[in-house]
Amino acid sequence: MSGLFLYPALLACLAAGALWLGFLLAQREWLCRAGVWVMGLSLVLLTLELAAVLFRAGRLPGANLGEALLLFAWALVAAFLFFYWRYPIKVLGALAAPLAAVAVSGSLILPSQTGTASPLLESFWLSIHIVLAVLGNAALTLAGLGSILYLIQERQLKGKRFGFFYHRLPSLEQLDALNYRCLTLGFPLLTGGIISGSLYAQYTLGRLWSWDPKEVLTLAAWLVYAVLLHERLAVGWRGRRAALLTLSGLVLLVVTFIGAHLWAAGYHSFSSFAQP
């Protein structure tokens, strides 16, 4: 039963990725429009899959890395479509759609839950924590992808090499604005995720903060983004430096997301969620 909608969702993500890569190569407007529709379809399918898990298990998916990837893919696609609607940067799809496809295939490949999940995961507040954190991660991932595009385009303009990307990527101003917007959305979400998690920890474990590896790494990433946001607003940092900081924050987030799974020690580790 598990993964009824996962394969169609994977296909939709792959198709959207192919359409956008086609758009990047051939610069045909219809490819881009089709990419948006297929991406929308994959959002519907991922939502159905989430609903199926919710219905079957009575809790949000997130008990193992596979489920967390599913949640992340959903958030990434949703965030992408949101930003595309407000601030369309077409070529971003060529990075976001394949990444969503990787996340969905990760969730297909990784072993699904053995045994029942800890009853802690059924809490409403924990769901809030997970949803905020994942949405924040998705928005900040988009900021990172936008930063990659920025760095490519900046390199072309600085180096005076006007190759393949120069003509296909949008202007530096637009890419920098994307970075800023994703940051101003992603940072509060991440902050909310950390706060709601701490409050929940206080409520269940009796302490706000446990210095668990996932917490420490997330805090480090949070600090990077906080510095970036502050400097952007106060001193006007932007461009290359902002892009590099965004990317280093993203690296920390990725290490947190994947690495915390491998570090069995912390209570955030997925393995600790399963009960024998």
Binding site: L157, H167, S171, L172
Partner: peptide, 21 residues
């Protein structure tokens, strides 16, 4: 017609890649 073939227009097109508008 997209690609500027005069020096002055090429400068303007570069400006658009930096500032967008």
């Amino acid at each position: 017609g997209d690609h500027a073939v005069s020096v002055s227009y090429a400068a303007v097109m570069l400006g658009r890649k930096i500032f967008g508008d």
